[in-house]
Design a protein around this nucleic acid. Structure first.
Lengths: 239, 239
DNA sequence: CGCTAATTTGAGTGACTTCAAGCACAGTGG
DNA sequence: CCACTGTGCTTGAAGTCACTCAAATTAGCG
């Protein structure tokens, strides 16, 4: 496969192992830091490329250093359900590793310039077993994920499209923030957004148009600007 | 509150701490066994009584010794979504304990004669920190739960009622088994079953009636007999 | 090279269909 | 006798299909 100059540059950049400013690494001692320095591999992924696919076997975990990773499952008729977006500091692929199962999700670079730190299984296990703080952190991450997944279940089961749309907008705002003009910082296609809340593109578009007409949002293609957050909150949380 | 003779008897039975034949306890050493013997409390719950409610603060975890515990969340309009049924050997209430949050689910005795072993937080933490095998077991349990929750998301989001009904029947069969005559071992109201798959009682009843008419099930009130499992499998897994 | 032309991709709309929820009510058995 | 099961009917929310339009990407070509 051909690698051009820019990609090569990025690949070289990725060789520097950034273990500071990642919360998960803050509890490591000197030896453990060194262990990671020596045994981890930083990897670069172009936008939309696969990091791993459903059904493959993992030999380690990834920690997101930069960019946004989309994690989703593919349903019986090929429809995608987005489970979460992982960003800086998040760990991915740990579940199948711990249970020694095949990957049950697919991960893809959602943004450009995705840099991941790959930790081989033995290193990950070493940290898990010999660093109680690290162990605790992983447990807390799992708990949070479990909780979010449970909430997703009751949301899809019990709320209508309008509510879920308001919810996902606010959740994205909370997770990825807005700029000075209240514009959502993450860009998503309508299809992605629909796949986050268990609906189809057209239906989501209709609800967004409704929100626009009601003065809750301003929409210019992928730019989504929040105009009336209290009202969105109200739609998201009650009926 | 009045306690009759039978209940008292059951309460007394519950004083015996059964730490053997629970998989989670198999990795404990003598000291840890003793720690549990001295510090755990076995509790008895009558059918339909609350074990804990959404919003309360936990001070320990429970391990199911006998009976079936229903774990659910209550949605915005008071509708229940059943997340799982816990049975012998399963651990409940650990999530909120690990994250130090309020309970985000409600647990109730679904069957009669529910006996739980209550482990106070310090004991649980002690085991978690000082017994790697125990730690690993808990992690695996969390992974399994997370996986199941994720699957639930895509099921509710992407499959129709007919498929979900077939799926839940097979899942219940797998988890609770059938007797000599292929009758499902767990008894559920139609409302409970509906709440497992994000639908309402009437809709579920109609699908069950359809399965009955198609010769896949025999239904006599709460007795559900499997007649054509391959066909159910087919309905559950494809379209 | 640069500048259109052509193609692809995503956003958006309208018409139609359908699945399942909602409501009302009848039966039944523990 | 009341909670639970079951049925008929109606309605509506959301999915499906078919299409347009705009923007972005790629291809073609002087």
């Amino acid at each position: 496969m051909y690698i051009n100059a820019i990609d090569r540059k990025k690949a070289i950049q990725s060789q520097t192992c950034i273990t500071n400013d990642i919360a998960l690494f803050s509890c490591l001692n000197g030896n453990q830091m060194k262990l990671i320095e020596l045994n981890s591999i930083n990897k670069y992924f172009k936008k939309d490329t696969y990091i791993y696919r459903e059904g493959c076997r993992h030999s380690g975990v990834y920690i997101v250093l930069n960019g946004i990773v989309k994690i989703y499952k593919i349903g019986p008729q090929g429809k995608h359900s987005i489970l979460r977006f992982a960003q800086k500091g998040d760990i991915i692929a740990y579940r199948s590793l711990l249970t020694n199962e095949l990957a049950c999700t697919t991960a893809r670079a959602h943004s450009g310039d995705v840099f991941l730190c790959y930790l081989p299984q033995p290193i990950f296990m070493e940290l898990l077993q010999n660093n109680p703080k690290f162990n605790q952190s992983i447990m807390r991450i799992m708990c949070r994920e479990l909780n979010e997944s449970n909430n997703m279940v009751i949301n899809i089961a019990q709320t209508n499209l309008r509510e879920r749309t308001a919810q996902v907008l606010l959740a994205l705002k909370k997770e990825f923030g807005v700029d000075y003009a209240n514009t959502l910082r993450i860009t998503l296609t309508r299809a992605d957004m629909a796949n986050m809340i268990g609906t189809v593109t057209e239906s989501l578009i209709r609800v967004l148009a409704q929100f626009r007409d009601d003065g809750l949002l301003a929409i210019d293609r992928k730019r989504i600007v929040f105009l009336d957050i209290p009202k969105l909150d109200q739609i998201a949380n009650m009926r």
